[in-house]
């Protein structure tokens, strides 16, 4: 492998990893704070992809697509949280069934509205084309994904580390009773967290859409990727999700390059290796009894 190729693969890995981070961060936060397992998480991504497709077809504007899809998906998730999820905090089996049911519902709605034929999303005009980095040709779009991904990671980091909401999130991850003991309207925060998670997934969908394309079954593939990221990184830690995403980004991209037939397996092999060494993930905390 030549140096330029390696540079391209590294950039590909980073852009893919950051895309995964957008998705996994929300899943990780939702689980970490709310203790909610959300199997409809991949569906939010898929909805993001298809909604942005619809908006782009109507208006041709990528920015509108991003805003529209992310807002719509956040709203849907808020309704879902207020009407259903709220009733089943701390009921693991019910969460699984409910969110699995929603995954079915969203999948069928997508099939209803857009049919089963895979579609591709156009890249925004200003981000088309490629530029040369150290002699390697690299698509501008992927650089943009890297840029936006880092930006969002920073914003999330600031929210978690520097704001009141962040303090509550962190306290909630460590000690739910204490948070409700402080008299904070935890329900409102839970709804917001859930919506934030969905928002991140939808943004991931809009940004990732031009790379992944739009097809049925995207939801479960993305869900499993996000799960793998979270499991590898450690549940409920943003840092862990970041580490897990970048690790998978590299494993998958280089796996694709070296063993094209078994690319998917490299992720799982990483996962097994991590879990055997650290059952709670790379940065996961030890379970307290």
């Amino acid at each position: 492998m030549e140096v330029t190729q390696i540079i391209i693969q590294v950039l590909n890995s980073i852009s893919y990893g950051l895309l995964l981070f957008l998705l996994a961060a929300g899943l990780s936060l939702i689980f970490g704070l709310m203790g909610v397992i959300n199997l409809a998480y991949g569906s939010f991504f898929m909805l993001g992809v298809y909604l942005s497709l619809a908006v782009i077809e109507q208006t041709g504007s990528f920015i509108l697509a991003l805003l529209g899809a992310a807002t719509a998906v956040s709203l849907v998730s808020m309704v879902m949280e207020v009407c259903f999820i709220r009733k089943i905090y701390n009921r693991e089996l019910d969460q699984v069934l409910l969110t699995f049911g929603f995954a079915y519902i969203f999948m069928d709605i997508v099939r209803w509205c857009w049919g089963g034929t895979p579609q591709s999303l156009p890249k925004p005009v200003m981000l088309q084309g490629s530029i040369s980095i150290l002699g390697a040709i690299f698509p501008v779009y992927r650089l943009a994904v890297i840029f936006v991904g880092i930006l969002l990671a920073l914003v999330l980091w600031l929210i978690v580390e520097k704001t009141r909401m962040g303090v509550i999130i962190k306290a909630g991850v460590d000690d739910k009773e204490m948070v409700s003991g402080l008299g904070i309207n935890i329900r409102l925060y839970f709804t917001l967290i859930f919506a934030l998670g969905a928002f991140l997934a939808a943004v991931g969908g809009v940004l990732g859409g031009p790379i992944t394309g739009a097809y049925l079954g995207l939801d479960s593939e993305i869900l499993v990727l996000a799960l793998a990221v979270v499991v590898i990184g450690g549940l409920g830690t943003l840092k862990g999700a970041f580490l897990g995403s970048v690790l998978i980004g590299f494993m998958e991209t280089f796996g694709n390059a070296f063993f094209p037939n078994y690319a998917m397996m490299t992720i799982y092999i990483t996962m097994v290796a991590v879990l055997v060494l650290k059952p709670n993930g790379l940065l996961g905390k030890d379970e307290r009894p």
Partner: peptide
């Protein structure tokens, strides 16, 4: 043709 939708709703009803 919309039976997955109905099955999905069945999950939700089942939980509630």
């Amino acid at each position: 043709e919309r039976w997955p939708l109905v099955i999905g709703m069945l999950f939700v009803i089942c939980v509630i």
